[in-house]
């Protein structure tokens, strides 16, 4: 087991080594690229002062609120749109158009409406996150095998039962794919929004520390973001494995979409 972990991390370790050595030998200007040791030192300092925790906390709060709102609104809506043909027919064009409206292009609009406070940032994260969740829920519902529905009907299931016992479990894998895409999107939009219009959070910190030429600190924030993304993805993969034991084992990490 430990050997496997080391082997699978070969490239990562190589990159860290190169990153450490390139500035040390002066191949890359160390003012622009702090080495991992400098970054970890800066990170430790930022953790001690509580600054990193504070910014991470704020960022997470924004991302989770936007993401959470998208989950609780878009999964039910996805079920409605996937299940009732008429509902999808009248709304499909709207959805296809709206999802092409880039989240960040709407950020100024949200700023106008909601001001520089939390709501505008949550709104822009919500906007970006809702599409993958909605579209994957719809496709999950639509790809339910009609034979299974027939089979359930033949055993006396009514509509509610079919929804609960057939449609819901059958579309779960697709919904979880939507959640993973949504979570990735949430972090992406979060950083950009915080860079443009915020006075706290990791996105703001990256910009701010770069501005003040605190380069190791800037990298520390970038690394924190990467770690957040990694944690989120692994948690969702774990959730997927826990909830979907009935699928043939596939290498979930390799089918990253």
């Amino acid at each position: 087991m430990p050997y496997r972990y080391i082997r699978n991390s070969t490239a990562l370790i190589a990159l860290l080594l190169a990153w450490e050595l390139l500035p040390a030998f002066g191949i890359v200007n160390r003012t622009f690229l702090s080495s991992p040791s400098e970054v970890s030192a800066a990170m430790a300092k930022l953790i001690m002062t509580g600054e990193l925790g504070m910014h991470t906390g704020i960022s997470l709060q924004r991302a989770f609120t936007g993401f959470g709102l998208a989950v609780i609104t878009m999964i039910p809506l996805g079920f409605l749109m996937g299940w009732y043909r008429g509902f999808e027919e009248i709304s499909d064009n709207l959805v296809q158009t709206m999802r092409q409206v880039s989240s960040l292009s709407l950020f100024p609009v949200f700023l106008l409406f909601f001001g520089i406070g939390e709501i505008s940032k949550i709104a822009v994260i919500y906007w970006g996150t809702q599409w993958p969740i909605l579209l994957n829920t719809i496709s999950g519902v639509k790809s339910v095998d009609p034979l299974l529905i027939k089979s359930a009907r033949s055993m006396g299931s009514g509509d509610f039962s079919i929804f609960k016992k057939v449609v819901l479990p059958s579309s779960l894998p697709s919904i979880i794919v939507g959640l993973r895409l949504g979570a990735t999107h949430a972090i992406l939009v979060l950083v950009a929004a915080e860079m443009i219009g915020a006075t706290s959070g990791l996105g703001y910190s990256i910009k701010n520390w770069e501005f003040n030429f605190m380069i190791p600190e800037m990298y520390a924030a970038i690394v924190t973001l990467a770690l957040l993304g990694l944690t989120t993805n692994y948690s969702l993969v774990y959730l997927e494995k826990k909830m979907i034991k009935w699928k043939e084992e596939t290498n979930v990490l390799q089918v990253e979409k």
Binding site: D145, L147, L148, K150, S151, A152, R153, S154, M155, G156, K165, V166, P169, S170, L172, I244, W246, K247
Partner: peptide
């Protein structure tokens, strides 16, 4: 449909998320 008739399809139509006993318990 009524439970006084049971149907077996060529394509099995088992619920993949239910175990053997779970599938049989459905009706």
């Amino acid at each position: 449909p009524d439970r006084n008739r049971g149907i077996v399809f060529q394509g099995y139509a088992l619920f993949p998320w239910r175990s053997v006993i779970g599938n049989i318990a459905y009706g």
